[in-house]
């Protein structure tokens, strides 16, 4: 029996969490659907292609510029389904509430969740409520699960990725993490940042409908863009080259990062999808993205390369090339 205890690093999306998931959960549960450790499990239900996912939300504070835990828990689960190429259909909504939470606050959270679900075209069809004594949880924790159908079939996997494919993102990175951090009020500085929290199913569905060029995608949540790209590089027989100057970062977000020693590439997003697309289709897909307000700042940030297999390289703004690793260590707890 190990004497080790769980520390915040185990939930930070870095190496410790990966180890926990791989060595404890995946080992113990063992089901083949869990093996890929993707954002959602791909299932065949009665010969229909489906996707199933679940996520818990513990963001602190529960209200932040650009959203609140209610909006976040819908957008996050919708996005986990969407990036697997699924059309989200219905969601569950379970909450653990701390005794003493003002009812008005709960109402506001639930209204946001309802509004967000309506906007995304999904229904909330089941749920659960538990109340615990003061101090036994922090205001409210929410878990949502979701089911989606897959009208676009399999298609999306790292298998078809080859050198020359373009890597796209639908806009500015780091907004969510920095806005939540600023909302905690312990930064002693004024920060103009709003969370990018938004359901991306509409954007993703238009792209998949108009182009067959999308090969793979992920939403860049905890661990940021760097974590998604590292995962991609490890799963393909190719390398990844990113041009740091082309990655969109708002000046306010960059400024906070510089001051606190964070890399914007490591900061969480809640409305950003990273896509690997066939080079010839890249322009067209960018045009489709830009038509949607959630993709107004979409750009190509890099490409898949033949050399340097399994690793992500980054061209710095001064023209040098270095490796980009996934973030390690405890970054920002309770960011989503």
């Amino acid at each position: 029996m190990s004497t080790e205890r769980i520390t915040l690093a185990h939930g930070a999306g870095g190496e410790s969490m990966r180890r926990l998931i791989r060595e404890l959960f995946r080992e113990a549960f063992g089901s083949p659907e869990l093996q890929p450790l993707a954002d959602a499990a791909l299932l065949e239900l009665d010969s229909r292609q489906a996707a199933f996912t679940t996520d818990s939300y513990t963001v602190k504070p529960i209200f932040f510029p650009g959203g609140n835990i209610g909006k976040l828990c819908i957008a996050g689960t919708v996005n986990d389904l969407s990036v697997m190429g699924a059309r989200p259909v219905c969601l569950s909504f379970s909450c653990i509430i701390e005794e003493g939470l003002p009812l008005a606050v709960l109402e506001q959270i639930v209204q946001s969740a309802a509004e967000e679900a309506r906007g995304a075209g999904v229904s909330i069809v089941t749920g659960d409520t538990k109340v615990v004594a003061r101090g036994e949880c922090d205001e409210i924790f929410i878990t949502t699960s979701g089911i989606g159908v897959r009208p676009f079939g399999k298609g999306l996997s790292t298998d078809g990725i080859k050198a020359g494919d373009a890597i796209l993102i639908n806009g500015f990175i780091g907004d969510h993490g920095i806005s939540v951090l600023a909302a905690r009020g312990n930064l002693s500085m004024q920060v103009k940042a709003e969370s990018d929290c938004a359901p991306l199913n509409g954007l993703i569905e238009s792209i998949l409908t108009e182009s067959a060029g999308v090969k793979w995608m992920r939403d860049a949540t905890r661990g940021g863009l760097a974590a998604v790209l590292s995962e991609l590089a490890e799963d393909t027989p190719c390398g990844i080259m990113i041009d740091e100057s082309s990655v969109p970062v708002r000046e306010s977000v960059q400024a906070v990062c510089e001051l606190l020693g964070f890399d914007p590439l490591h900061i969480a997003n809640e409305g950003k999808v990273v896509m690997v697309v066939e080079n010839a289709e890249a322009e067209k897909i960018l045009t489709v993205m830009k038509r949607d307000p959630l993709g107004a700042h979409a750009v190509c940030i890099g490409e898949v390369t033949e050399d340097s297999t399994g690793i992500v390289r980054l061209k710095t703004p001064v023209g040098t090339v270095r490796r980009l690793h996934r973030p390690a260590g405890e970054l920002l707890p309770r960011i989503c």
Binding site: G261, D263, T316, P317, V318, G319, T320, V321, R322
Partner: peptide, 12 residues
Amino acid sequence: TAAIYRFALQRM
């Protein structure tokens, strides 16, 4: 130290 590595200055 962080900037030297982050921008890979040694390589220039």
